[in-house]
């Protein structure tokens, strides 16, 4: 085990996969000479050269589509969006081309591509640069969506995403790049997509959290432990395919669920998880499934407003107390 930041863990994963497979290449804005806008791609240009690590113009639709075309002929592109906010320009290629190519070609063209970059709430950059849009991508069959919450998960999942034969949207939380954690040393450490991780075991309530909300949920669980409530924290890690089984078996054990997410609540991932629980574990519920989502507003700039827009430990604690009928 080595202690490192999520940024370093991602960098390792990219380096190892570029090393492992000639068909893997990395493309995006400022990924090469600049060493990455968030330094995730630091050193890769020097190591692999400008054939494999390619700076692009600011042309998101263009290079996203170029990546999909390259994947059609057997390459394994890693397309970095400087942030996922800019992927919105590329959604035609991600959704209409990448997600559907295999299906509408009757199985002839698989698209092994990774769209990755930071997403979710950033620090005081207002509405256009600070948002969680995973539910958009998770909506579409054909795409996989991954959101790691620890350095080890980031590394293991990114390596699996690069090796996956499907288009994978890999969203790294912008605020979490500096978070440190133990990362296994094994040469070929990977984590399969579609498998949730129980980050903490408990028996009175389940908190489902992803990405930035995982540390929030863990802190809430600590606080609740002091109040005599034992919480299980589940990180799905992969939003699509979603490991519903792990969530359902936890719900059957605890009978109460809170789902924490930084995204907007409407048509969000928590809504989907809630529906799954309702359909598959209704008779095990002792309380309505409760969501703690980001405020249903564009992200404001002012620090105090921004803090209010992102779910807090206190909100999660309160929600758990509610479903446990303690308040």
């Amino acid at each position: 085990m080595a202690m490192m930041t999520m940024r370093e863990a991602l960098n390792q994963a990219l380096r190892e996969e570029l090393e492992r497979d000639e068909n893997v290449f990395l493309m995006g804005e400022e990924v090469a000479a600049y060493q990455g806008a968030y330094k995730v791609t630091k050193g890769l240009l020097d190591e692999f050269g400008d054939k494999r690590v390619i700076d692009t113009p600011i042309t998101e639709l263009g290079f996203a589509g170029l990546g999909v075309g390259a994947a059609m002929v057997g390459l394994r592109p890693i397309i970095e969006f400087m942030t996922f906010n800019f992927s919105i320009l590329a959604t035609d290629q991600i959704i209409n081309s990448a997600a559907k190519m295999l299906y509408m070609s009757g199985g002839q063209f698989k698209i092994p591509i990774v769209f990755r970059g930071p997403g979710g709430s950033a620090y005081q950059v207002s509405s256009q640069h600070s948002q969680a849009i995973e539910s958009w991508y998770a909506y579409f069959p054909g795409l996989k969506v991954v959101m790691p919450s620890t350095p080890a998960d980031a590394k293991g999942l990114l390596k699996s995403a690069i090796r996956d034969d499907n288009p994978v949207v890999f969203i790294e939380q912008e605020r979490m790049y500096g978070n440190k954690g133990e990362v296994p040393d094994e040469a070929d450490f990977t984590i399969p997509l579609g498998v949730a991780d129980v980050k903490r075991e408990g028996k009175d309530a389940t908190i489902v959290a992803r990405s930035l909300m995982v540390p929030v949920a863990l802190k809430a669980a600590e606080e609740l432990e002091k109040q005599g409530v034992s919480c299980e924290v589940i990180d799905p890690r992969t939003i699509r395919p979603l490991d519903v089984e792990t969530i359902i078996s936890s719900v059957k054990k605890t009978n109460r669920v809170v789902i924490a997410e930084e995204s907007h609540p409407f048509c969000g991932v928590a809504a989907e998880i809630s529906a799954e629980i309702n359909e598959r574990a209704f008779d095990y519920l002792d309380a309505p499934v409760r969501r703690v989502s980001g405020a249903d507003v564009p992200m404001p700039y002012a620090k105090n407003l921004e803090d209010l827009a992102i779910p807090s430990v206190e909100q999660v604690v309160k929600a758990v107390r509610e479903v446990a009928y303690l308040d």
């Binding site: 009978n255 209704f282 008779d283 095990y284 519920l285 002792d286 309380a287 009928y325």
Partner: peptide, 23 residues
Amino acid sequence: SPLAARMAADAGINLRSLRGSGP
């Protein structure tokens, strides 16, 4: 709650004889 309903059915408890403590 769905769970309580199921538990009551299993245990043969008449739900109407109980007073709920939830909201």
